[in-house]
Amino acid sequence: MIETANLLGILGMALATLACRAGGYFLFRALRPSPFLRAMLGYVPGALFIGYVVPALAAGGLKEWLGAAATLVAMRLSGNVAVGIAAGTAAAWAVWLVR
């Protein structure tokens, strides 16, 4: 059920990922960040998700664009993440069925 090489590959991935998750935090604590770095971290979350979404939409087509627009509108109106996801996926699905 478990191949040795597969297990080693999975463990390597797990360690590398934990190093990313924990490493940034402990490095930050050890370095005692300047006000500039603290201000920077306030902008990181939004910019990080923009970094995800924008290239994905640029690589997509009508399905992704209308889906994203429906997600944003539903999210603004409802303030509920589940409603946003459902509306966006439904819109993307509708485009997919029509084409």
Binding site: P45, G46, F49, I50, Y52, V53, A56, L57, K63, E64, G67, A68, T71, L72, M75, R76, G79, V81, G84, I85, G88, T89, A92, W93, V95, W96
Partner: peptide, 18 residues
């Protein structure tokens, strides 16, 4: 398949409160 769009839709939704 549009089902895969749900993962991207989750990121787009989360941009609104950010």
């Amino acid at each position: 398949h549009p089902l895969f769009f749900a993962a991207l839709a989750a990121f787009v939704s989360l941009l609104v409160p950010l």
